[in-house]
Simulated scan of single mutants.
Amino acid sequence: MKKTLSILLAVALTAGLAGCGAKQTSPASGTPTSTGSSEKKIIKVGASPVPHKEILEVVKPLLEKKGYKLEITEFTDYVQPNLAVNDGQLDANFFQHVPYLQNMVKEKNLSLDYTVKVHLEPMGVYSKKVKAITELKDGASIAVPNDPTNEARALRVLENAGLIKLKSGDLVTAIDITENPKNLKFKELEAAQLPRTLDDVDAAVINGNYALEAKLNPSKDALAIEAKDSPFANILAVKKSDKDKDYIKALSEALTSPEVKQFLQNKYTDGSVIPAF
């Protein structure tokens, strides 16, 4: 009897230990614990509404096939998305071009980089007061983005349109204008606000995504537009330490897939958004 009881207790103890181990590695919820797989399966990305969020919606099913779930957080400013990635609240963001990222990394001491260039949104000059760039009168007011890289970009568009001449350099501002024959007056405003200023200024130089949100058609409504060989392609920004991780590689591949290129070519036939890959 004693021998039989000892055997039964040993079997029960072994089964109990096995059961504890199973709970640690395979919880009922199906979510991996510290003793299970640590591979990240949910990717959190911050994006501007148009066209970035639209593009990410195309990417969702592509990532699902690889076992990843994409969560998109919408932003309407150019500062918070980078801070959120740097702080680890987001895994990546998709709203900006390389010069803007590089300037913010330097200015805010951020540990960010980019993986792929996805698309270009040509910047344009828009107006409710005139129908042609040559109709701008002496002393006309023009609104431009107030962040360094986009202001420089906007001024170069105006220079290429023959309105002003600028010093050489990457981050030029209004004080770097060397020739201004029409005595144009410049108002520096947050990029997202520019479409709403068209009733108050003679013209505004607006980023492509904000023009699209305001139902402005770059090919029809812009008085002047950025050249297609512009270096300001929009990118996927990530933390430097995450750049080579599998989930970031999967997201980068999906954003530069044939499906995304086809989506851009089919939806933006007016050339307002063009693939950069």
Rank of each mutant, 00 (worst) to 15 (best):
K53V: 15
G88W: 11
G46T: 09
V85W: 06
N82K: 00
P49N: 13
S26I: 05
I43F: 01
I72F: 01
A47D: 04
K66Y: 01
I42P: 02
G88D: 11
T31V: 15
L70Y: 00
P49Q: 15
T73P: 07
V59A: 03
Q24L: 15
L90W: 09
V50R: 08
F95N: 11
I43Y: 01
E54A: 09
I42F: 06
E74A: 12
T76S: 14
T73I: 13
T31E: 15
K53C: 14
K53L: 14
E64W: 01
L90G: 04
K69W: 03
P51F: 06
S38E: 14
G36A: 10
T33G: 00
N93R: 00
G30D: 02
A47N: 02
P32W: 07
Q89T: 08
V79G: 03
L83R: 02
S29H: 10
S26P: 02
E39Y: 08
N93I: 00
I42R: 10
H52P: 07
E57W: 07
K69P: 05
A28M: 10
Q24Y: 15
L63W: 01
A28G: 08
F94Y: 12
V79I: 09
K66M: 00
L56T: 08
V85T: 14
K65V: 02
Q96R: 13
E57I: 14
T76L: 12
S37E: 11
N93K: 00
T73F: 12
A28R: 14
Y68P: 03
E39R: 13
A92Y: 04
D77F: 07
L70C: 05
V59D: 12
G67C: 00
G30H: 03
D77C: 05
V45P: 06
L62C: 01
S48N: 15
A47H: 04
E54V: 04
L70H: 01
K66T: 00
L62W: 08
A47Y: 03
V59S: 01
V59G: 01
K60V: 10
F95M: 10
V45Q: 06
F75A: 10
V85H: 05
I42M: 09
L63A: 01
Q24R: 14
E39D: 14
V45H: 03
L63Q: 03
I42S: 13
L90P: 02
I72A: 04
K40M: 09
E57V: 13
G46W: 04
E71K: 12
K69H: 11
P32I: 06
F75G: 05
E74S: 13
